[in-house]
Design a protein around this nucleic acid. Sequence first.
DNA 1: AAAAATAGCAACCGCACAACC
DNA 2: TGGTTGTGCGGTTGCTATTTT
Length: 358
Amino acid sequence: MGRPPCCDKVLGITKGPWTPEEDLILASYIEEHGPGNWRSVPTNAGLLRCSKSCRLRWSNYLRPGIKRGNFTEFEEKKIITLQSLWGNKWAAIASNLPQRTDNDIKNYWNTHLKKKLKKFHSVLHPHHLGSSSKSFEFLNKDYKRSYDRTSFEYHHLIHQASALNKFISSTITNSITSWSSSTTTTYASSTGNISRLLEGWMRTSPNKLKDSSILKLQTTQTEEKVLPGGSDNSNNDNHNTSNNNLDDDDNLIIKKVEVQETCNGDDYLISNEADYLESLLKFDSTTIHESTSASSKEPQTTNTTLEDRVDSIIETNHQGLVEDDQDQPPFSLLEKCLLDEATGQILEEDQMEISPIC
DNA sequence: AAAAATAGCAACCGCACAACC
DNA sequence: TGGTTGTGCGGTTGCTATTTT
């Protein structure tokens, strides 16, 4: 069976980068008719593009409300956290960052965050160099099954979670200064995006739009100001990013020294596991109850052994994954710890809770 | 100053799945 | 019930800009 050939196999279909004219045509059409029925969009709008290409262009670039440019430290830590929980579920992650597209997040992960995590992994496991491309999959994997508390994996998870927690805290703290000085740009509408495009296009092709009606359209249809600097702005963003990367590299070096200083023996593992488990137990039992078991109203006892408590945490976490109809997202305490301790007031900062993965 | 290497990102590709007929 | 279509999604590619040599 299988799908018939995509329309982009048809001769005469334009591929490659979109021109400002095409963007304008598409945006105008969507604004008039609304998104949907993409099959008919190229024909009706008079575009020599495949429907898929139109949909992607709209959803990843022209759609109103898309924020482009630098990711904030809050967005960054949210991506790191969610990726560690869900893996490469970019659409799900993007749903928690409404102004970002899945493609944008994916690119940012692949070009920035993955490198940071790779370095982090190499610091943690210098003897496992080269196997760090999936640094945090241990969380995602372990998230999906129950644990044997006597197993090596269990202790390894606790250890890595502790290290991850510290890493995120360190990265966030170190990046706050650099990120806070950078600015992000919100493109409130598709016409705003097109204005930016036109600006950039005119810079590279100053003669192209000399008498273009599109230019007139741009200046008359939108009251929005083109950002000062236009494409230069993005260049500045790139510079900022580069500087940030340098900063992060320095921070990672410092971090490496710190880790090496504290990783001098087995005591490190034991003490940190103990510390981390202790930190887990500091959570109010009501919080555990509310975040993982909305259906049960029974109060949680706090007079239990450490092992029992951890078992309870993991068990409720596991159940949380199974029960789809819960009001609360299936967040484990471990994950909540990572989230809260690593990011400070992550939820308070933004008044936005993380949606459960579908 | 020029060539090579690298980074960043927009766009493409192909699979999966649900809705529809 | 099975085929077709539309859409969503994640992985990958290829172009351009920037940095390094």
